[in-house]
Design a protein around this nucleic acid. Structure first.
Length: 854
RNA sequence: GCCCCCGUGGCGGAAUUGGUAGACGCGCCAGACUCAAAAUCUGGUGGCCUUCGGGCCGUGUCUGUUCGAGUCAGACCGGGGGCACCA
């Protein structure tokens, strides 16, 4: 028997699959369609274990579904625009295109060595002009549909990256990549009108029952729907009024002040005549972006001396403040404060000595004595001190007050969302150019479609900060498509989240003349199973859902949701190690001493073990997939990443674990060879003993098929692996005579088929060694023969007072009286009863007998 | 602060609707093969006690519901994640 040589076997089958174009998807192939997609990678340089895990999970699904008779689409491409390419250009004087394409080439090679069943014929990169040209066409479609617009807006400016960040790219007031505090600037900026779809995006979540509940909840919170009312407050001595959004219009009688955002137009207007207020606004803006402010969060205000008139007809005048805790971006940028029933308003009122009238009385309290102390009362109750609302429940009061406001013309019912429009302009070179031209006489003019794609210029320098497109001597200077006068191109490029918001649709027809080929998209979409990291739970997934709805509106396809199934996998972690100097030590650079402790292999310094953390260069705890493939082969790596941990949890990478997977690889190979060596010998003669042993093998085989299939369907890959281990143990333990039996051969054939999705090269080689001429990749999944699932005996647990005392072997379906009799005959049970009176016997057929005594 | 998830052997993790806790793997121990090692195979492996029959304890802690709780309920402790002045 030849020792299993993973390298030659894996290369051999990868070549055969590629030459036979085995995994290329065509819509005319038979079977229901199944689109499985893993989040495409950013070409950062080399693949990491996170990629290996992600793409192995997807590949198991793709190969399994293929075997189950589905017409599977499983494509791969590159999310190729983005900042790191420009950083590399700046640092190493390499052109972003060159850097990106070299990385793609390396990573493609690494992925191919993993043996994933991708349809490589559909590969594209988002930096291909064919792709971003279509994206520019889509941008024009958005514009024509009123879904892309330009406005002056406060934007988050990253002073290090010299670019605008989306709200969601600002984390604790700092840029998500640069980590430095962002500044607020007013800039002309392109937006996509995602807010038009707030309601749809929220309601659509209900149908996504194959998404993790956690992700749906995160999206729900992100969209942030609130029901309430828009209320007008007249301003004493002025013609204008304040518009305020509130979710608690029932507490209007409890209002004791109004507060404006520092960015509210009225605040700015007042500040022009009031230098103190101007200084306060400046202070607020500074606070708004510093990390410190978030920690302290002291509520401060500035009294404008304006008085707002209570809109509920009680004639009260409320002071108007500008307050640091009011956001311009949410609601109307102005609030009324009801300190009795809102904690933040209460803190504010206490600070500025404002009244705190209670208007909602909790159950069991007396209206005469009820007072608000240090905590606002936010629960339900009965209205008091509220004029015509008195005596109503708070929710009844909401309807009544809204009806009142509507009648008075002082307000109306309103629903608001936290979700903001998506700012997509980036001051960057390495992104999709926005197809607009700015003409001094015609304004912003769309680029005619026949001029697409607008290609990025190749001759660019990265010697100074800012956007190279802006510095380019010729690229931006063009004639206006309308008046033919001198004009300039838009030099901003699109946020890279735009690139990934529709790539899954492009995969269905990557060479289509339109952005999306409707026939192909309607055939393949939606993606049946999408797999990726939880870090994209909000942004990417929400943008893709938005794009899909727009594509439908543009009549480019007919589906609402892009991904009907979503799976989010956990991180790949590894133990961390530090030496005496505190520097992180690479796992590959460890040497274990006799006593079990570690030292550095290079300089012998003592090393301390740390905790398991996500593999990262900074912690120096990475294991390079290529090293693992070199040492053990792709199949072993694939097997290990799906074997121990459930895929949604973090995977602990261990050297012992990968060794164990490698041992299993060889064990399967030995088992296959045992059958192969006996193939040309006649099957063993069926004696009585052999017959029953053979039956046992067949029963185990079919039980395993049943279990493994079910486990794969629900992503319990680690359990499928455990079942396969048990199966292999069962087969290995079979006596030599049995190994020539038909049943045993059947068992090993089945084993080979079942490891196909997980260790495809080994399985394919074994299939051939076992005398088959077909490709295993084209073989159907084994069928369960229900006959073998029937059990002859089952084990019944017998408890006395809930404690296990004995077990009984019996046929399934044995009746209760019989079970009780059998249980009482047991010596062990009698000993436990110890002569006491039996109060009750509980019998659950096929499960348990529990005897209750005095 | 609010919301969500998770706590099971030395480790990763199993355990349909409440019904034999610890499947399977790793590690460890013992044995077989070998001059030896590697590889492989076999057996054992939650803790404590044991007259070797077995007994007691045990799923973060404490209460409760139940004939019966890892599973359900309440309170708490610990770990992880998300959101965060959202009116």
């Amino acid at each position: 028997m030849a020792r299993y040589n993973a390298k030659t076997v894996e290369e051999k089958w990868q070549k055969i699959w590629a030459e036979g174009r085995v995994f290329e998807a065509r819509p005319d192939q038979k079977g229901p369609k199944y689109y499985v997609l893993e989040m495409f990678p950013y070409p950062s340089g080399r693949i990491h274990m996170g990629h290996v895990r992600n793409y192995t999970l997807g590949d198991v699904v793709a190969r399994y579904k293929r075997a189950k008779g589905f017409n599977v689409l499983h494509p791969m491409g590159w999310d190729a625009f983005g900042l790191p390419a420009e950083n590399a250009a700046f640092k190493n004087k390499v052109h972003p295109a060159k850097w990106t394409h070299e990385n793609i080439s390396v990573m493609r090679g690494q992925l191919k060595r993993m043996g994933f069943a991708f349809d490589w014929s559909r590969e594209f990169a988002t930096c291909d002009p064919e792709y971003y040209g279509q994206q520019q066409a889509l941008f024009l479609d958005f514009f024509e549909a009123g879904l892309a617009y330009k406005k002056e807006a406060w934007v988050n400016w990253d002073p290090v990256e010299h670019t605008v960040l989306a709200n969601e790219q600002v984390i604790n007031g700092c840029g998500w990549r640069s980590g430095v505090p962002v500044e607020r600037r007013k800039l002309a900026h392109w937006f996509f009108k995602i807010t038009d779809f707030s309601e749809q995006l929220l309601n659509g979540l209900d149908k996504l029952d194959r998404w993790p509940a956690k992700v749906r909840l995160m999206q729900e919170n992100w969209i942030g729907r609130s029901e309430g009312a828009r209320v007008n407050f007249s301003l004493k001595g002025r013609d204008d009024h304040l518009e305020i959004f509130t979710t608690r219009p029932d507490t209007l009688f409890g209002a004791s002040f109004c507060a404006l955002s520092a960015d509210h137009p009225l605040s700015e207007q007042l500040a022009r005549e009031n230098p103190d207020l101007a200084a306060f606004l400046k202070e607020c803006r500074k606070l708004g972006t510093s990390a410190e402010a978030i920690e302290k969060a002291e509520k401060i205000g500035f009294d404008t001396n304006l008085k707002a008139l209570s809109p509920v007809g009680d004639g009260r005048e409320l002071p108007v403040y500008v307050a640091n805790f009011v956001l311009m971006e949410y609601g109307t940028g102005a609030i009324f404060g009801c300190p009795g029933h809102d904690q933040r308003d209460l803190e504010f009122a206490r600070k500025y000595n404002l009244p705190v009238p209670p208007v909602v009385l909790p159950e069991g309290e007396d209206a005469k004595t009820f007072e608000i102390g240090d905590e606002a009362y936010t629960g339900p109750g009965t209205m008091i001190n509220s004029g015509f609302l008195n005596g109503l429940k708070d929710n009844e009061a909401v309807s009544k007050i809204i009806a009142f406001l509507e009648k008075e013309g002082a307000g109306k019912r309103e629903i608001t969302y936290r979700l903001r429009d998506w700012g997509v302009s980036r001051q960057r070179y390495w992104g999709c150019p926005i197809p607009f031209i700015h003409c001094p006489s015609c304004g912003s003019v769309p680029v005619p479609r026949e001029d697409l794609p607008i290609r990025l210029p190749e001759d660019v320098e990265f010697d100074k900060p800012g956007n190279p497109l802006d510095h380019h001597p010729t690229w931006k200077h063009v004639t206006c498509p309308k008046c033919k006068g001198q004009a300039v191109r838009e030099t901003d490029t699109l946020d890279t989240f735009v690139d990934s918001a529709w790539y899954f649709a492009r995969f269905t027809a990557p060479a289509a003349k339109l952005p999306v080929d409707k026939t192909q998209a309607n055939y393949w979409l939606p993606v049946d199973q999408y797999i990726g990291g939880i870090e994209h739970a909000i942004l990417h997934l929400l943008y893709a859902r938005f794009f899909t709805r727009v594509l439908k509106k543009l009549r480019l396809l007919d589906v609402d949701e892009p991904f009907t199934g979503l799976f989010t996998q956990g991180m790949v972690t590894h133990r961390t190690y530090r030496d005496e100097d505190g520097s992180w030590v690479l796992p590959a650079n460890l040497k274990q001493l006799e006593d079990g402790s570690f030292v550095r292999a290079d300089n012998g310094k003592k090393v301390k073990e740390g905790r398991y953390e996500k593999m990262s260069k900074s912690k120096n705890n990475v294991v390079d997939p290529s090293d693992i493939i070199d040492q053990y082969g792709a199949d072993t790596a694939r097997w290990f990443v799906i074997s121990d941990s459930p895929p949604e949890r973090d995977l602990l990478w261990t050297e012992a674990g990968i060794e164990g997977a490698w041992r299993f690889t060889r064990k399967v190979w030995r088992l296959v060879n045992r059958v192969r060596e006996n193939l040309d010998r006649a099957p063993a003669k069926a004696g009585e003993k052999l017959e029953s042993a053979e039956e046992d093998i067949l029963r185990l085989t079919h039980k395993t098929i049943d279990g493994v299939s079910k486990d794969i369907e629900i992503f319990h890959f680690n359990k499928a692996v455990a079942r396969i281990y048990e199966f292999v143990n069962g087969l290995t333990a079979a006596p030599a005579t049995l190994q020539r039996s038909h049943g045993f051969r059947e068992g090993v054939f089945t084993l080979v088929k079942m490891i196909g999705p997980m260790m495809p090269h080994l399985a394919e080689e074994a299939w051939q060694q076992l005398g088959h001429k077909t490709l295993l990749a084209n073989e159907p999944w084994p069928e369960v023969d229900k006959h073998y699932l029937a059990v002859e005996t089952i084990t019944i647990a017998v408890q006395v007072m809930g404690k296990l005392r004995d077990t009984l072997e019996t046929a399934p379906g044995t009746d209760q009286a019989e079970l009780e009799k059998m249980a009482l005959q047991s010596d062990k049970v009698q000993r436990a009863i110890n002569g006491k009176d039996i109060k009750k016997v509980i019998v659950v057929p096929d499960k348990i007998v529990n005897i209750v005594i005095e």
